[in-house]
Design a protein around this nucleic acid. Sequence first.
DNA 1: ATCGACTATTCGCATAGTGAATAGTCTGTT
DNA 2: AACAGACTATTCACTATGCGAATAGTCGAT
Lengths: 178, 178
Amino acid sequence: MSTGHVLLGLLSRGQQHGYDLKAGHDALFPSARPMAYGQVYAALTRLRDRGLIEEAAVERAGGPERTTYRLTPAGRDELEVWMSAAEHPPSEVNNPLATKLNVALVAGGPDEGALFLRRQRSAHTARMRDHTQTKRAADATLTQVLAADYALSHLDADVRWIDDALARLGEITREVTP
Amino acid sequence: MSTGHVLLGLLSRGQQHGYDLKAGHDALFPSARPMAYGQVYAALTRLRDRGLIEEAAVERAGGPERTTYRLTPAGRDELEVWMSAAEHPPSEVNNPLATKLNVALVAGGPDEGALFLRRQRSAHTARMRDHTQTKRAADATLTQVLAADYALSHLDADVRWIDDALARLGEITREVTP
DNA sequence: ATCGACTATTCGCATAGTGAATAGTCTGTT
DNA sequence: AACAGACTATTCACTATGCGAATAGTCGAT
């Protein structure tokens, strides 16, 4: 529940209510998709149900009623555990390239597989050009540059995998379609 | 709906029922998490509601009743569209490292951020050693080798990003926590 | 005859996210 | 003074996806 953990992190700066948390998230992650309000309040409800946050106040101060939340000790623990735990990066389980390659092989055979790999390769290189341009833009923020670097290196990793798969396509086909 | 597309791909080999599809998936993706039955049948129902598959037969042949499904023309189209479309790889939106780094910075400051990056780096290098061993195992299948290669190159991409972020941590902190 | 294994499907529940709706208050305009 | 429109804050109804347990029939072995 990454959404929830981000909210816990934002709440560690002090008690806040949903509207502010949404704004805080969108400011902290400008390139990410803005959080929908429904998502924020649903996540807050779940966090409260799990005892990680609690209502700090319900007040009406020049506007609609607002419910302010704060971290509980359990929430602080949860945040700390999440921050100390290493993220597990995409493993084989969610390797979308291999998934699609295998489906292409069983559904259409080696030619279909090769077609997919080549198309995917050119789509990736096109995206890499875009990211390189983003990086080089004069007004790029550091966050944007880091985001582009991240995307570039992962796209590059994908392309190398694609080339490898293309080179061994015959072997792969034999292993996947018995 | 990747699950659905995989099922469409499996069905393109000919009509099958849910139980076989689950087995077919698990055989095609041995390292992926096995599909739960509930997941398979729910996905089949959705595909049928969308007109991508249809009931081919309902029979009882030495066992419980079984419903066999086959692709419709619309399903064949959908499969083809999915196979021709390039996969969008993880963009900045779901960069778990940057997410966690930012949360660490706002919740704990630069020291907390550096701690996370260093912990993450060593976790990654440990996993890289594991994958390298998997690759070198005498009985490794090609699928397993490719999976390990995929994981290794993405872990390597992450590590390079981490090193970059560590080097620029001061700048990042200033940009993220105003 | 009956116990357990296998085949096949269904059910209920939980999680996560989306867009629109609701409702109050404040500010500027005519 | 009235009212349009913007802003603050939350809720609702809906969709998608996934998981584990429950159900139910048949077959073979003891």
